[in-house]
Design a protein around this nucleic acid. Structure first.
Length: 724
DNA sequence: CGAAAGGCTCTTTTT
DNA sequence: GAGCCTTTCG
């Protein structure tokens, strides 16, 4: 196969420019993933570069997997050991093998957002501040900002002062101490520590610089300063750095991604070759025009010419609905209509929204109408309490100094270790400057007056240490699934979870985790354990999308980056939602909201629906909302109104009596009442349906009767009959 | 000590 | 509307 054959001139140029830095500015749907895959294949097959000497960084694990299979197909054999993955996964690997040089325990655990939160709260308490007064989330964010620019606590504190910074600086310092005591790294540390490793050890850096002849980074517009420095360092010797991205799709500034990385690339690498990919292969002309009209409103932006040879296609459908329930119902109805009238499958459709909370109403509608869907994220599987508990045991087996995990499960299932005892334990450990587990290990050696516990509780604590030590010993020889069963058995978790509320379902979840564990059971025991823990720490929600399942995808706009669907619904296009209210007082943020909308729109290949509701309940109370300003950016001639109000098309209200339980994939068509229908009522006589509105599991219809006037009726009580 | 109930706050996006 | 935390009671 000729690797260059199926590429357009710009793409070909991007693949062939293998010497020196290259900046590829790639519009949506311009085949950038393709270019990266082809470029890697070209390096291996045509240029004879050893795969071992190539690093390719992707935004998600899913993208990495896809990249691997594409390259494999192009090269025609196994890709060899190319370094391929997210920044986080790649850095975790480097730190496991080299981290010792900067004092990192190779068995380190990776702390997620949740762990981070509890550690920040503890840090606040440790320095004598009240976590309720200092919004731990803001502090996490400030620490994360620091780490995204490679600032240590000391660097941070030298950055000038104000009240908040002073507090953050002190918390950051304590937080970092606790992480070190726990042999733990948070997400930001994975990158930052790798940079520190390379800064402080020119020998190690030299080794990696020598190895990586070629570097490729996808979604470069969403990298932060630390990631940029990492790439700069790794490419320091050969300078064959190829970065790909699109400033118009930069949507992670809140995670301290710096679009300056891509905008300033030419300045930092004056010899860089710049290639523009502007031909779009994904969307119809109308969709592309809609997208352009939205993004062009942004002031701070380099104009670019996106074009396509695809057909003109359908107009964008803008839909005006009453409430979020009606919005959800519209989406479900419309998908079912497309399924029956067009060559569309459920798997071709996606519903996108700004906030996770919006998925709930959608889910309810999909369940009610029995339409299969796949929810990306929501309450993620790995965030469930029982799953986190079990994983905490595994983390303790790998690294008992992990204090977040220790405090999480030391009394789960209940062992009679209460709050007071835990406080004593933490204080005692803190006064000695060691991790909780280390102080627990001392217990059996110390006499009564040398430690703070009474003998009853002391023995319980020693019992817990023995449990973990025992599991640790067995983990050297048992495969992971046997280990799993042993953990469940020895911890007594099964009885515990079954006794609690929702026990059955939670136990099911644990069994599902067991099937995940099974995938690691062929590995050497200790390798399997760490591979499993690394896997669960670094999964992203989109990694789990099952492409073989023919179901509608429900996904946030952020997660949708890089994906494409035949039919896209973007819901909640309202002021305060998209754009989100938090962006109102900052023009920069507002531009990011618009980019987010742009990302969503450009996911669509053939059909695009933009939906806004007049009324939406948020945090309990229902409020009326204006349509999003982004809708106003779109010229009228690109829009077709899908609205009931404007088009006068009847609004369907289906199967309000018989929620769910329909066979999967089938709508319950038995009862169907639309506005405009003629109906007959036993006492009121004949009339016309004026409006329909869902109320819980019921429906409220307003009917104008010929004799009796306008009546408001509940479907479950009123016996209505359709009249032709 | 643990479970249950009540009251509080805060809601963006995630590797 | 939910989750988190505190309070209360057994």
């Amino acid at each position: 196969m000729d690797i260059l054959a199926e590429l357009n001139p710009a793409q070909k140029e991007a693949v062939e420019a293998i010497n020196g830095p290259v900046l590829i500015l790639a519009g949506p749907g311009s085949g950038k993933t393709r270019v990266i895959a082809h470029r890697v294949a070209y390096l291996i097959r045509v240029c004879g570069v050893n795969a071992h000497r190539i690093m390719a960084v992707t935004f998600t694990n899913k993208a990495a997997r896809e990249m691997e299979s594409r390259v494999q197909r192009l090269v025609g054999s196994s890709t060899g050991n190319i370094t391929l993955g997210t920044f986080h996964a790649i850095c975790a690997r480097i730190l496991r093998s080299e981290g010792r040089a900067i004092g990192i325990n190779p068995s380190f655990v990776i702390y997620d957002e949740d762990d981070r939160l509890s550690l920040v709260k503890r840090s606040l308490r440790d320095i004598g501040l009240d976590p309720k007064q200092y919004a731990p989330r803001n502090i996490i964010s400030a620490i994360s900002a620091a780490k995204s620019s490679v600032l240590t606590p000391r660097d941070y504190m030298e950055q000038g002062h104000n009240y908040f910074k002073e507090v953050v600086g002190r918390v950051y310092e304590r937080y970092q101490q606790l992480l070190t005591e726990s042999s733990a790294l948070d997400f930001d540390d994975l990158i930052m520590k790798t940079v520190q490793l390379f800064r402080e050890n020119t020998g190690i850096l030299g080794k990696y610089q020598e190895r990586y002849l070629h570097l490729l980074v996808d979604e470069f517009q969403d990298t932060n300063l630390t990631q940029y420095e990492l790439i700069k360092k790794l490419g320091g010797k050969y300078r064959n750095i190829c970065v790909v991205g699109d400033p118009d799709q930069s949507i992670y500034s809140w995670r301290f991604a710096d679009v300056g990385n891509i905008l300033g690339f030419e300045k930092n690498y004056p010899e860089a070759k710049v290639i523009l990919l502007e031909q779009n292969y994904r969307s119809t002309q109308k969709i592309l025009e809609t997208a352009s009209s939205i993004i062009e409103t942004n002031q701070k932006r380099k104009p670019k010419d996106l074009w396509t040879e695809n057909e003109a296609g359908e107009l964008t459908t803008v839909v005006d609905v009453y409430t979020e329930q009606e919005e959800a119902r519209y989406v479900v109805n419309e998908i079912e209509r497309l399924l029956s009238e067009q060559d569309v499958h459920r798997g071709d459709c996606a519903v996108m929204y700004r906030t996770n909370a919006q998925s709930r109403t959608l889910e309810e509608a999909f369940i009610r109408y029995g339409v299969p869907y796949k929810l990306v994220a929501g309450t993620r599987f790995y965030e469930r309490r029982e799953i986190k508990d079990i994983i905490a045991y595994f983390r303790l087996i790998q690294n008992p100094y992990d204090s977040v995990s220790l405090l999480r499960v030391i009394n789960v299932p209940g062992r009679g270790i209460g709050k007071r005892s835990l406080e004593q334990l933490s204080d005692w450990a803190k006064s000695r400057g060691i991790a909780e587990y280390q102080s627990l290990q001392l217990l059996s050696e110390l006499k009564g007056d040398e430690q703070p516990f009474k003998s009853g509780i002391k023995n319980t604590l020693i019992g817990f240490v023995n449990l973990i030590e025992g599991l640790g010993r067995r983990s050297q020889e048992l495969n992971l699934v046997d280990m799993f069963d042993l953990v469940i058995k020895q911890s007594g978790y099964k009885d515990y979870v079954l006794a609690g509320t929702g026990g059955e379902e939670r136990w099911e979840n644990i069994l599902e985790l067991r099937t995940v564990v099974q995938q690691y059971s062929d590995l050497e025991p200790l390798t399997g354990l760490s591979a499993f823990l690394e896997g669960v720490a670094l999964v992203s929600d989109v990694d789990g999308i099952d492409a073989s399942l023919d179901a509608v995808t429900l996904i946030t706009l952020h997660q949708a980056k890089g994906l494409e669907y035949l039919v896209v619904f973007i819901v909640g296009l309202e002021e305060g939602i998209l754009p989100h209210i938090r962006s109102f007082d900052d023009p920069g943020q507002m531009e990011e909201e618009r980019r987010l909308c742009y990302v969503g729109v450009t996911r669509a290949k053939e059909r695009l629906y933009l939906i806004h509701a007049f009324r939406r309940s948020l945090m309990g109370s229902s409020q009326s909302r204006d349509a999003s300003r982004f809708l106003g950016d779109i010229p009228r001639h690109l829009i077709k109104s899908g609205s009931f109000w404007e088009s006068g098309e009847p609004q369907l209200v289906k199967s309000i009596y018989s929620p769910d339980k329909g066979p999967a994939g089938k709508m319950n068509n038995d009862i169907e009442i639309m506005t405009g229908d003629r109906v007959r009522h036993a006492t009121f006589g004949d009339g016309i349906v004026v409006s329909c509105k869902p109320v819980k599991d019921d429906g409220e219809v307003v009917v104008a009767f010929t004799g009796a006037g306008i009546k408001r009726l509940l479907l479950s009580y009123a016996t209505l009959e359709k009249v032709e």
